[in-house]
């Protein structure tokens, strides 16, 4: 009985190591729920083990525990991971970068207006790194009010919990479509690249590139892009 179990264990371990799929982790703020996006990408790329994260903390924890073959995410997040090389960049209407704006209610705010004030952001990097990231962008010191999901930014403005929120231009349009508040935007001087694909090694490169090339309009639209471009070295 014991020997049978041992053989079964060896067989299972051997077999699992042979068929273990390359893995893709996805983390970026979108309106679409993580489980829905995971289902959509998994259907298109069944050869990959796809995990979509709704929360940054879970993403960072899982990266440490079981590092994936590749990640789909925003550049500041990828850069912070350290061990992933970008190979594809997403583009929309020919642009690979997007402007970020400061959104407030009633009147547009200047940088001086927001000095020492509370600003709402989606937490991409974790508490301290996010603080450092924003401090590196804004010429004035601000207090951050971080939320875990993009849709939590609107309540911050509704309840007057913050002076303004920092969002991409496309997210500003989504906010305007959702809310009847008099939302106005002013420039933040921040531009960020759209979603990127980054690899932890060259092993699964072809498989991952093939997967992204099969993304349909629905997935690309969720990811905020309409085209994928190879990264120039």
């Amino acid at each position: 009985m014991h020997s049978k179990q041992a053989i079964f264990l060896i067989f299972t371990l051997t077999f699992s190591s042979v068929v273990q799929a390359e893995s893709l982790f996805v983390f970026l703020p979108t309106q679409v729920r993580a489980k829905v996006m995971q289902q959509q990408i998994s259907q298109i790329c069944p050869e990959l083990e796809v995990t979509v994260f709704g929360r940054g903390k879970d993403f960072r924890r899982q990266i440490k525990n079981t590092p994936p073959s590749a990640v789909l995410s925003l550049m500041p997040i990828i850069e912070r991971l350290g061990s992933f090389d970008p190979v594809l960049k997403g583009a929309k209407n020919g642009q690979t970068r997007e402007k970020y704006v400061i959104v407030s209610v009633g009147r547009p705010l200047t940088m001086q207006d927001i000095a020492q004030k509370k600003i709402g952001v989606v937490d991409l990097l974790g508490r301290k790194p996010m603080g450092e990231f924003i401090a590196g962008i804004f010429p004035v010191a601000v207090k951050l009010k971080r939320v875990t999901k993009t849709e939590d930014l609107l309540p911050l403005l509704t309840f007057g919990s913050v002076e303004a929120v920092l969002v991409s231009e496309s997210h500003f349009l989504q906010l305007k479509a959702k809310s009847n508040l008099n939302l106005v935007a002013s420039s933040s001087n921040l531009t960020m690249s759209l979603v990127n694909l980054a690899l932890s090694g060259a092993n699964a490169k072809e498989k991952l590139l093939r997967c992204v090339s099969r993304f349909d309009d629905k997935i690309n639209s969720t990811l905020g892009v309409d085209q994928w471009l190879a990264m120039s070295k």
Binding site: V147, T148, K149, D152, P155, L156, F159, S161
Partner: peptide, 9 residues
């Protein structure tokens, strides 16, 4: 610090 409304739903 007043009493806040819940943000995340």
């Amino acid at each position: 610090q007043g009493i806040e409304h819940p943000l995340s739903v």
